[in-house]
Every structure is written in C-alpha cells, then in structure tokens.
C-alpha cells in the first residue's frame, strides 16, 4: 500500500513536535527556540489532516497544484529560520569577542603586576 501524502505530512508534523519535546526534556535546546518548530509541526499536521485547507489557500493564491504551494511555503519558512540563525550567530560572535577583550584587559600583565 502506498501511503497518502496527507498521512506522511501528519507523521512528519508529529515527529517534529515529539523531537522538540524530547530535546527540551534533555536540555539540548532552549525552550525559547522551540516556538518556531512547533508552528512548523502544527502547520505540517494541519496540511496532512485537513488537505482542504491547503487546497483553499493554494486556490486563493492562484496556485493550481497545491503541493507546489506547500513546498514553496516550507522552503520560505526554512529560509527565514536559517537567516535568523546567522543573524543570531553574528550577534553571539560580537558578544564573545567583547567578553574575551574584557577578560584579556583584566588579566593584563605589566611591570607593576609581577614580582
């Protein structure tokens, strides 16, 4: 039997949700970063459980073949998430550099600080 794509989508959604719950439980991910993934999981479950919703949205946007919309939106969502991660990473890099600079200055060595 070939699995219908709506079931696949539901399974993926539930798996994402369970994975995130597991990661929070094990302290591998800060709860602050989980909202996005839960939204993604919910969207995936809705798309699987209520395919009419996707069809309607696709129709609204003038997309003839609903799965195209599904993939485009998923792609856009991931794109935004990864871009946000790079922004976050740059911010962290600045913080880390400033901390190292501060520590380095605090631990300076000069003629007066040695015996």
């Amino acid at each position: 039997m070939i699995m219908p794509y709506r079931l696949t989508s539901t399974i993926i959604g539930v798996s994402i949700a369970l994975t995130i719950l597991f990661l929070v439980r094990k302290d591998y991910i800060h709860v602050r970063h989980t909202l996005w993934w839960f939204l993604l999981a919910i969207a995936s479950i809705i798309a699987g459980a209520f395919p009419n919703v996707v069809d309607r949205i696709a129709w609204f946007f003038g997309v003839n073949y609903p799965p195209t919309l599904f993939f485009s939106l998923g792609f856009a969502a991931l794109f935004l998430k990864i871009l946000k991660m790079d922004i976050e990473l740059s911010k962290q890099e600045k913080e880390i550099k400033r901390l190292i600079q501060r520590i380095a200055i605090l631990e300076k060595r000069d003629r007066g600080s040695e015996d």
Binding site: I100, A104, K108, R109, D110, R111
Partner: peptide, 12 residues
Amino acid sequence: GGAIVISHGRQL
C-alpha cells in the same frame, strides 16, 4: 621589552 601585555585567549 617593557610593554603592558594583554593576551586574547584565542585568536580574534
């Protein structure tokens, strides 16, 4: 040489 030395813990 007589300098005040500030060492970064890693290369920045």
